Amino acid sequence: MANFTLEDVKSLRERLGTGMVDTKNALVEADGDVEKAVEILRLKGAKGNAKRADRSTSEGLVAARETDGATTLIELACETDFVAKNDKFVALGEKVLDAIAAAGAGSLEEALAAPAEGGTVAQLIDDQAATIGEKIELRRVAVVKGENSAVYLHRTSKDLPPQIGVVLGYSGEDAETARSIAQHISFADPQYISREDVPADAVENERRIVEEISRNEGKPEAALPKIVEGRLGAFFKQVALLEQDYARDNKLAVRKVLSDAGLTVSGFARFKVGA
């Protein structure tokens, strides 16, 4: 009989987050040697990582960390909400975020190569995926710079870690209003700060579409320019933060709220898990 106890099984499961049967079988194979059982479980999990490579990851978490003059936002994804709310997955998110922020990594490639626990972030994630038994991937990374920053992390379910994350970079002193703008971004999902930031080809494509729609509706040719500009205005309100109606008071534009608070937005990032 293998030289281990139920307490050994429990302790190893808590350490690695592995299943009861897999943990017990590894201890049997290792004849009770805990460290050898850890190696067996990791090797087994590593083989499983390759098989899981094509699986979809629609669950996970977002997390943010502020460092000197910059704030890093990440999305760490997994397959199921069961793993997303697991303490080991949440702890992995913190480790990954710490490593990326410490390295100042601004791209996904740089983030995966960042040093972490004697290896890289990519290796740390692979190791945890092997023991947890699901595909785990770092999906997105953003770094927002600014004189100040506001962070808003939103939980769509009380049982899950944050699923929507916003980082707002700004200059000014009104931190409360800045945070409310971050909350607005989480709801309204703008893509750009101002209409001037929208790429010209995107504007021209939208102009072409709304002009064609207006013609198909039988609008008078002479009135088309004004109608098209009006519909372009609606497009800008959809994609540009400063043009949007403020979520807390739709009688005010975000531009007005920021101006009254003495705030200037330098950048923002918004991640939603699985989106």
Score class of each variant (00 low, 15 high):
M1I: 13
A2W: 06
F4N: 08
V9Q: 04
R15Y: 07
L16K: 13
V21D: 04
D22S: 06
D22N: 08
A26D: 03
E29S: 11
A30F: 07
D33E: 10
L41W: 12
L41N: 09
R42T: 14
L43T: 00
G45H: 07
G48H: 03
G48W: 09
K51C: 06
D54L: 07
S56V: 15
E59N: 09
G60Q: 05
L61Y: 08
T67W: 11
T67D: 10
G69Y: 03
L73V: 00
A77G: 01
C78F: 13
F82N: 00
V83R: 01
A84E: 05
D87S: 14
A91H: 10
G106T: 15
L112M: 07
P115L: 13
Q123H: 04
D126V: 08
A130D: 07
T131S: 10
T131I: 14
I136V: 15
I136Q: 03
E137M: 06
E137C: 09
R139H: 12
R139N: 13
R140A: 12
K145C: 01
N148F: 01
V151L: 07
L153R: 07
H154F: 13
R155M: 15
T156C: 02
D159E: 13
D159F: 11
Q163N: 09
Q163W: 09
Q163C: 09
V166T: 15
G169Q: 07
S171W: 14
E173D: 15
A175M: 11
E176Y: 08
S180I: 00
A188D: 08
D189F: 05
Q191I: 12
P199M: 11
V210E: 12
E217S: 01
G218L: 12
K219P: 00
P220N: 04
E221L: 13
A223L: 15
L224M: 03
L224V: 00
K226H: 11
I227W: 13
R231C: 05
A234S: 08
F235V: 09
L241E: 02
E243N: 04
Q244K: 01
Q244G: 02
A247C: 01
R248K: 15
L258T: 10
A261N: 05
A261G: 03
G262I: 14
V265H: 01
V265L: 10
F271D: 00
G274N: 06
